[in-house]
Design a protein around this nucleic acid. Structure first.
Lengths: 146, 146
DNA sequence: TTACATGTAATCATTGTAATTACATGTAAC
DNA sequence: GTTACATGTAATTACAATGATTACATGTAA
């Protein structure tokens, strides 16, 4: 199992909107960079739009960030593209046997523990912004072009 | 997407081995508590055995914990049942366009960030032991039986 | 009205999960 | 050694999510 690449694609898109901010960025252009189908990009862009992270208009080529770079965290993207539901990163077996001491208590015991672990993950994502990502891309670009 | 319930089932099994330590615990008995098929239990038990967490013998009903309760963390179980591969909780789109500045740097930029997030999750799991889980089950049992 | 963009639904191949069945193998008691 | 019963494990199935693709309705500006 693995968290959908919609998330990493979402981060890619937002970074690209910033780095190519002076150019027209159609879904086809973005798809070329991500290396996927334009319809996939449009679907993800729709999610980012619903979350208030980007501005796109039907019929008009081009998209822009709807917020400042440093006001968008990876957690915002993660939530926007809907890769993991609230408190459902871990699936717990349902209908354990209520006639067994373990069966009738395991869910109630384990759920808060898993929830804490999921929060730790999300907190880590919340501490990184698209601004950080863009800066890192620019640094790597410098280093690699030498 | 969701992390396989093999993990929560694994925790269930280990807790059950402790709580019913004085009784014979066949895969069928355990399956009755978890509410699944005995073959599923045997498969997961095999993984727990490979990880050195339980002792089981072919042909002999019954299984036991192979370590002390407080020496088994949920992270051990999580790794044992193989629900998430090393550094692969997040999937990253592959083959982004190397002719694009974002495309040629995004993977190298994003991978360590995702790795840190995954580590935060795993660290949280590493701080809880089966002993903690068993104690919590016993407490909940007391409260609910009043 | 034309050219071209986004929005979105439907389809498809692929993959992972969990349940189930079946059977080979192992063990202990008799 | 044979019987009874357990674990080990492979094969099959139904189901759900992903990502790619196609198709087309809708929106916009020249």
């Amino acid at each position: 199992m693995s968290i959908s690449s919609r998330f990493s694609v979402g981060v890619h898109i937002l970074s690209l909107l910033e780095i190519y901010k002076n150019e027209t960025k159609s879904s086809e252009f973005i798809a070329g960079s991500v290396n996927t189908n334009p319809a996939v990009i449009r679907k993800i862009m729709g999610m980012l739009k619903n979350a208030g992270l980007v501005n796109v208009r039907p019929g008009v080529a081009g998209a822009e960030l709807a917020k400042n770079l440093d006001e968008i965290t990876l957690l915002d993207v993660y939530k926007a593209v809907n890769v993991v539901q609230e408190n459902e990163l871990f699936s717990v077996h349902d209908h354990p046997n209520p006639e067994c001491m373990v069966g009738r208590n395991i869910q109630e015991t384990i759920t808060p523990i898993l929830s804490i672990a999921q929060s730790a993950l999300e907190k880590a994502l919340g501490s990184v912004t698209i601004s950080d990502v863009v800066k890192d891309i620019e640094e790597k670009e410098k280093i690699n072009s030498k």
